[in-house]
Design a protein around this nucleic acid. Sequence first.
DNA 1: TGCTCACTCGACACCGTGTCGAATAATTTC
DNA 2: GAAATTATTCGACACGGTGTCGAGTGAGCA
Lengths: 221, 221
Amino acid sequence: MMFGMSPRPAGAPPANGAGSRRKRSKGDLTSQAILDTAEQLLETKSLDEIAVDELTSGAGISRSTFYFHFESREAVLYALSERVAEGLYDSAALWLRRGSEPPEDSIRRAISGTVALWRAHGPVLRAAVRARDTSELVRRFWSGVARKFVDSTAQQIDIEREAGVAVPGPPTARALATVLVSMNETMCYSLSLARKSAARDREVVETLTAVWLRAVYGVPR
Amino acid sequence: MMFGMSPRPAGAPPANGAGSRRKRSKGDLTSQAILDTAEQLLETKSLDEIAVDELTSGAGISRSTFYFHFESREAVLYALSERVAEGLYDSAALWLRRGSEPPEDSIRRAISGTVALWRAHGPVLRAAVRARDTSELVRRFWSGVARKFVDSTAQQIDIEREAGVAVPGPPTARALATVLVSMNETMCYSLSLARKSAARDREVVETLTAVWLRAVYGVPR
DNA sequence: TGCTCACTCGACACCGTGTCGAATAATTTC
DNA sequence: GAAATTATTCGACACGGTGTCGAGTGAGCA
């Protein structure tokens, strides 16, 4: 069962990171093509409804060639996750200390960013969330991401509590942060399932913002 | 693709409801055995990791006999869901109007009940939640259940708002109820994944209760 | 030119699904 | 209680998807 970290077989050249400007080998191109096809297909079907030959015929190669590039469908999803993870971390940075603006604004902005990201990459994010229960690899990856969110949120809550602005515990800053973050995730998940509607998006953002504000700072007065 | 409502083939005698004392036909017994085996296997594996022959060998029959009793693995899950649905509705009743006790108590009691139910039937409930994205049948069923929860919660919030006890909207009572209910579900889901720990359970109940209280009534003072 | 190694392919063995028709057990009908 | 009917079970089969293997192919480099 080992660990299969790499989407490419052992001995393959190091992946060309996003920054690298090295010449794209042919293999990189087809890997990309597989990834693109996968992301497109995920808009319609769930990961385990997608057969390997759908991926490969979309990329113009034969089915068995797939296994040269990825060791499983889940590995594809993992690679796809990494693609959007960066955007996610940017979004996480927004939780961090605001300037002098009121908390309401920074919370709303952060939540807005998350919703937008789910709108842009809903299918991949949904597949990744589902795969948490299936694939150990994906699970580790996303629990790392979630942790970043929870940590910075908890830290922020603690700061506000010490400043006497936020409602003191219990619950622990960390426990509170955990439920708030996963509440956001759940709502984004189901929102990304519905047809895009700016009005609905706004309503969800406002509702989540209100719950965050009241849970952390108490009722505004 | 039709609709396949019944776990038993068309023309089968009406299911013996829980109240009925009619003689158990042999078929009912094996259906039960399949259901029991399924519930037990779900403690270890996810629904689509369970092969039909695991179900049938557990019930002491041959694989093809399975299809006489259920039309698919999902139909099994649907039947399993109905089993626990009743308990769920009891839990839903707790959201309804308390007597004169403080809101904190009735909310905590309701959340406690939900957590207990997830502790008792976690594997089935998790599988059902996952299958919402896969099976139209399961999706309809559970959105009905969720609706009951959301409706009664929203109604309760409206009552409290009119009485001037709860923080007025926006957000809508319904929007607020939606996020609170799904927050509970998400937390119960992940809680039921961890090893049973009374301390952890209590912490989650307390955290959820606090968020509900603050979201609906504002900060206690 | 010829070597090497990344890359591709078709063929194969395997496994799980769902269906069918025949065989058997239970129940009803006369 | 024998015959007819219906409920239940089974083995066999066709199908479709997976993952592996060894044999190519071709582009770049010595």
